[in-house]
């Protein structure tokens, strides 16, 4: 595990409780989509995990949603603050050899999928995105996805932007899904459970979250129950799993 003293270059509010952090590193190797960094905060003992949402040279972007004290502490940091980070952690996603692929984002789940969209775009794999959130204000990163994807479909629970309904209500009716080879999804657990029921007939990789202890494979805190009846560590074996292989 590599530790970093990094500098916060920008902290921008994107929506209610939603913040985009630009962080500059002094030294940074390869970072794959799906990998995450663990942030030390002044509010909690353990580190907090955030996925890489984008990269530009030595700068990484993280997008966070405030849900508790650790995320609230980070959201209040001002530009120039020093950050104690560990990472990159976890396994990157298996990149597809051919497209088109579709990204399915529920709320803050758009964050790691943006970096995946960037990498797919670099590899000239065709990519569509379905971005869903509760309301228009919570729908984030739409422009960024727009510049990287063949097609971006928006949806909100209340219909304030794009189609009205849950991601899993809208997905089956999309004409584009027939030629999709692989799906990548990130969102709340309820979304994964509904996706499992939809049974799309193509591989679906799920970017999972879990309350982590160490983030480095030492404590078994983050386990997700596999179909084999054993817990698998989200931090070192994931955080991306084939949806087929996990119990929800």
């Amino acid at each position: 595990m590599k530790r970093h003293q990094a500098t916060l270059l920008e902290n921008r509010r994107l929506g209610p409780g939603l913040y985009s952090l630009q962080v500059e590193f002094e030294d940074l190797g390869d970072v794959e989509p799906g990998q995450f960094f663990e942030f030390l905060t002044g509010a909690r003992f353990l580190r907090r995990a955030f996925s890489v949402a984008d990269r530009d040279a030595m700068r990484l972007r993280f997008v966070l949603r405030v849900v508790g004290k650790g995320t609230a502490w980070l959201s209040q940091l001002t530009e120039g603050s020093k950050l104690n980070l560990a990472g990159p952690l976890g396994q990157g996603v298996a990149m597809p050899s051919e497209g088109p692929v579709m990204l399915l984002a529920g709320g803050i789940g758009a964050a790691p999928l943006l970096y995946l969209a960037r990498k797919l775009n670099e590899q000239r794999v065709e990519v569509d995105a379905l971005l869903a959130a509760g309301t228009k204000e919570e729908l984030i990163l739409t422009e960024e996805f727009g510049s990287l994807c063949r097609k971006v479909i928006l949806a909100t629970d209340d219909g304030s932007c794009g189609q009205k309904g849950l991601l899993t209500d809208i997905l089956p009716a999309l004409p584009a899904i027939n030629d999709i080879q692989i799906f990548y999804a990130c969102g709340p657990e309820s979304m994964f459970a509904a996706l499992k029921r939809l049974d799309l007939g193509k591989p679906l990789y799920a970017f999972l979250e879990s309350r982590m202890g160490c983030g480095t494979g030492l404590c078994m805190g983050c386990g997700v129950l596999g179909r084999d009846g054993r817990y698998h560590r989200v931090c070192t074996e994931g955080p991306v799993f084939n949806l087929e292989e996990i119990e929800l």
């Binding site: 509010a43 909690r44 003992f45 309350r211 202890g213 129950l225």
Partner: peptide, 17 residues
Amino acid sequence: VGNPQPRIWDSRETVIN
């Protein structure tokens, strides 16, 4: 196999696992 999730909670000076 251990216990169901969630398995970890913390405050500034404690971990509960």
